[in-house]
Amino acid sequence: MIETHSRVSTTVIAPKFVGRSWLIITLAVVLFGALLLGVGIGAVAIPPEVALAIILSKVGINLDVTFTPQQMAVLWHIRLPRVVLGGLAGAALAVSGALLQGIFRNPLADPGLIGISSGAALGAVFTIVSGVAVIGIYTLPIAAFLAGTATTLLVYQLSRRHGRTDVAMLLLVGLALNALAGATTGLLTYLADDAQLRSIVFWTLGGLGGALWETVLAAAPLILFVLALAPRLGFYLNLFALGETEARHLGVNIEWIKRAAVLMAALATGTTVALVGPIGFIGLIVPHMVRLAIGPDHRWLIPACALGGAMLLVLADLLARTLAAPAEIPVGLFTAFAGGPFFLVLILRTRRQYGLS
Rank of each mutant, 00 (worst) to 15 (best):
M1C: 07
M1F: 09
T4V: 15
S6H: 15
S6P: 12
A14K: 14
G19Y: 03
R20H: 04
S21R: 14
W22E: 15
I25Y: 10
L27E: 08
V29R: 07
V29Q: 08
F32D: 11
G33M: 10
V39H: 01
I41A: 11
V44W: 04
I46T: 01
V50Y: 05
V50A: 12
S57L: 08
S57I: 14
V59G: 05
N62P: 11
N62M: 13
T66M: 15
T68L: 10
A73G: 12
L75V: 05
W76T: 15
L80K: 05
P81G: 02
V83N: 08
V84Q: 07
L85D: 04
G86M: 03
A91S: 12
A91P: 02
L93V: 03
V95P: 00
A98N: 00
L100Y: 00
Q101L: 05
G102C: 06
I103W: 00
R105L: 09
L108I: 00
P111V: 06
P111N: 09
G112I: 02
L113I: 11
I114K: 03
S117V: 10
A124R: 06
T127V: 08
T127G: 04
S130N: 05
V132E: 08
A143H: 04
L146K: 09
G148R: 04
T149S: 15
T151F: 15
T152F: 05
T152L: 07
L153Y: 14
Q157G: 13
Q157E: 14
G163M: 04
A168K: 07
L170N: 06
L177H: 06
A181R: 12
G182M: 11
G182P: 08
A192S: 14
A195E: 14
R198F: 13
F202L: 07
G209C: 10
W213T: 00
W213E: 02
E214K: 14
V216C: 13
L217M: 12
A218H: 11
A219I: 01
L222M: 14
L224D: 03
V226W: 01
L227M: 06
L227R: 05
P231R: 02
F235Y: 13
F240K: 03
E244M: 07
E244C: 09
T245M: 11
G251P: 01
N253E: 13
I254W: 09
K258N: 05
R259D: 06
R259I: 15
A260Y: 06
A268S: 08
A274Q: 07
V276F: 08
G277F: 01
F281N: 00
I282F: 10
I285Y: 10
I285M: 13
V286T: 11
M289N: 11
A293Q: 12
I294Y: 05
G295A: 02
G295D: 03
D297F: 00
D297S: 03
L301S: 01
L301T: 00
P303Q: 08
C305P: 05
A306F: 02
G309M: 04
L313S: 05
A316C: 09
A316W: 04
L319V: 15
L319Y: 13
L319K: 08
A320E: 07
L323I: 15
L323P: 01
P326K: 06
E328L: 10
V331E: 04
L333I: 09
T335E: 06
F337Y: 12
G340S: 13
V345Q: 13
L346V: 11
L356G: 05
